[in-house]
């Protein structure tokens, strides 16, 4: 994950102006304090997720009813052994949050990867073949966009059955149209350029044109959308978890943790506060990063 965000500029380099594209990108990106803060938070969350087994003080699923609903350490009755308190069946909230970071990142990355692969291929096909194929694909995407995103995801999960896999599939489908539209629009702009004509004249086949010539030049908007897509994916998957349609208990997915603890909101503020805070901070970080990437990669905004 870390390497993915760090390598992003390298992929996007061809769209920037010649001398030092990577340095130029970093110059723009690092000028945006919000974006850097977002990147730092994301790196931290990634580290926490990778090292979950090492840094989590307790087993996230170990229950002990004698320890149920212990408050965080700074409140009376809390202990430093359970820094953020325990949930209704005595599991350590901090350890569950740490392990939940794994799930949330996994959800975000897997959903966006799936969506971006299918979406780019559909967009490339629509942009290249035009005609009926294009109309069919784009109409289908319009329909998906018309329906409120979470409603569609809920309906899909309701039909396929609750669970993390189905929730991820549903969210991937819901965010698909953005990638299809981006890829198609980029392809249509790119195919009219001389280098594509040159490649076609020198005998490149359609597949080569699509994936070797045009695709590398459409990556900038896709990278930006991917970063924003991860935040949507994490948020929507957590919402599904909260509704009982996503990851199922005892999974430490943040949304599911909230759903689990909801009825205790009146007695123990910490069981609902921390999982939601984790979602908010992670989603915020990806949004900050996305905004920063867009500003740094979009030539129109460059002064």
């Amino acid at each position: 994950m870390t390497t993915e965000t760090m390598e992003a500029p390298a992929v996007a380099a061809p769209t920037a102006t010649p001398p030092h594209p990577l340095r130029e990108f970093w110059g723009y990106f690092s000028a945006n304090h919000g974006a850097v803060a977002g990147l730092v938070i994301i790196v931290a969350v990634v580290l926490v997720a990778l090292l979950a087994d090492v840094i989590a003080p307790h087993d996230p699923n170990a229950t002990d009813t004698a320890l149920a609903l212990k408050p965080p350490f700074w409140q009376e009755g809390g202990s430093i052994a359970y820094p953020l308190g325990t949930d209704p069946i005595g599991r350590d909230i901090l350890s569950r949050l740490i392990h939940g970071a794994r799930l949330s990142l996994l959800i975000g990355i897997a959903v966006v990867a799936l969506s971006i692969i299918i979406g780019t291929v559909l967009g490339l096909v629509a942009g290249f073949f035009r005609g009926l194929t294009e109309i069919f694909i784009m109409r289908l995407m319009d329909i998906i966009l018309t329906l409120p995103s979470l409603l569609l995801a809920i309906v899909i999960v309701a039909v396929l059955g609750p669970g993390l896999m189905n929730a991820m599939l549903a969210v991937a489908l819901v965010i698909l149209p953005h990638y299809v539209r981006l890829a198609r629009a980029a392809v249509i702009t790119e195919t009219s350029k001389d280098y594509v004509t040159a490649a076609r004249v020198s005998g490149a086949g359609t597949t080569r044109l699509m994936f070797r010539e045009v695709l590398p030049n459409c990556t900038a908007p896709l990278i930006v959308q991917a970063s924003l897509g991860i935040s949507t994916a994490i948020l929507d998957a957590a919402a599904l978890g909260f509704l009982g349609l996503g990851a199922q208990p005892p999974s430490p997915e943040w949304g599911t943790m909230l759903a689990d603890a909801r009825e205790f909101v009146l007695r123990a503020w910490w069981v609902v506060t921390f999982p939601g805070l984790a979602i908010l901070i992670t989603v915020l970080a990806f949004n900050l990063l996305g905004d920063g990437l867009r500003d740094a990669l979009d030539p129109k905004l460059k002064r």
Binding site: L235, G255, R262, W269, T273, N287
Partner: peptide
């Protein structure tokens, strides 16, 4: 507004209940 845009509203609702109702 960036925080609002990133808000998990199902959590936001619970927090507001905690603050204003409880």
């Amino acid at each position: 507004s960036l925080a609002g845009y990133s808000m998990p509203i199902f959590w936001w609702g619970l927090i507001l209940i905690l603050l204003f109702s409880v």
